[in-house]
Design a protein around this nucleic acid. Structure first.
Ligand SMILES: [Mn+2]
Ligand SMILES: [Mn+2]
Ligand SMILES: [Zn+2]
Ligand SMILES: [Zn+2]
Lengths: 143, 143
DNA sequence: CAACTTATTGATAATGATTATCAATATCAA
DNA sequence: TTGATATTGATAATCATTATCAATAAGTTG
């Protein structure tokens, strides 16, 4: 099943916090790592139930929040009312482009934009700690 | 009370759509235009009630959505669970910086960043129609 | 292993912002 | 003034996320 590194990160986090391991969290982490999308809690719940039909959706909520805390995943608020989650460990920072017609979500980054954000923040006397950039428009197929 | 131009825009929109005028919408528009912040529906409701105590919050929701449709205001989703509204008519496009400590919200723009977003979208075969950029960090007073 | 402490789980209730519904009322054209 | 229809305010519904809680599982100690 692999994903040793990620499970090690989770286990280290649990140990540090005095928490316990559980089969549910392992199942959820495996299911999360096996997908490469931008998953909603409900998406993940459907998938995990195939391996563990008795798992409750509250456990998915709790696990994903925990995975975020230990750096395994990242929350993504695209403004559609639901939080989405994507891989963070082993993935470089990137921003997103969403197609207003087909709702496709595509990853994009421009190091120059990142640098100018830093510069803009500095010019205004701010210490930049993060940013959210979402581009909206029509994708290659829809325009 | 001024704001003739903005009221004219609203009235034109109502006429085009075959809708009717109302004192409530005029009061809400005046209250909205008098503030220069990034207002939540509840904020506006509190303010409008000072002039018109019987106004319901549903009417605020409806009016702000309408103002967005006719280009008078702009929705702002900062990820705090509530939609905020800011002036659009007569205001140039800008992005936002939020302080993670004091929650201050400051406006910022960099034409170079805007241009690079266009360039990035073009390079990926996209037709860019809008973007959301929020910078997070510590403001001058909090850092 | 057995006893015990404490974290986890799943079901379900609560929350809170936004929407939908609806009867009463206001607007406006004729 | 009348009639058609848009608007309003109260309130119920929605829906994603959180909180609650009793039952259970994990892990520690002896
Ligand atoms: Mn992504
Ligand atoms: Mn602004
Ligand atoms: Zn598309
Ligand atoms: Zn600050």
């Amino acid at each position: 099943m692999a994903f040793e590194k990620e499970h090690k990160i989770l286990d280290g986090y649990l140990r540090d916090k005095g928490l316990k391991q559980s089969a549910q969290r392992r199942d959820i982490l495996n299911a999360f790592l096996k997908t490469e999308g931008h998953m909603t809690v409900e998406d993940l719940h459907k998938i995990v139930k195939r391996k563990n039909p008795s798992i409750g959706i509250a456990t998915i909520y709790r696990a994903l929040k925990m995975f975020c805390e230990c750096g395994l995943c990242r929350e993504l608020r695209l403004g559609d009312g639901m939080i989405r989650y994507e891989h963070k460990y082993g993935h470089a920072h990137h921003d997103h482009f969403t197609c207003l017609k087909c709702n496709k979500l595509i990853e994009a980054t421009d190091p120059e934009i990142e640098r100018l954000q830093e510069k803009l923040a500095r010019k205004m006397g701010f210490k930049l700690q993060g940013h959210l950039l979402i581009l909206y428009g029509l994708c290659r197929e829809c325009k």
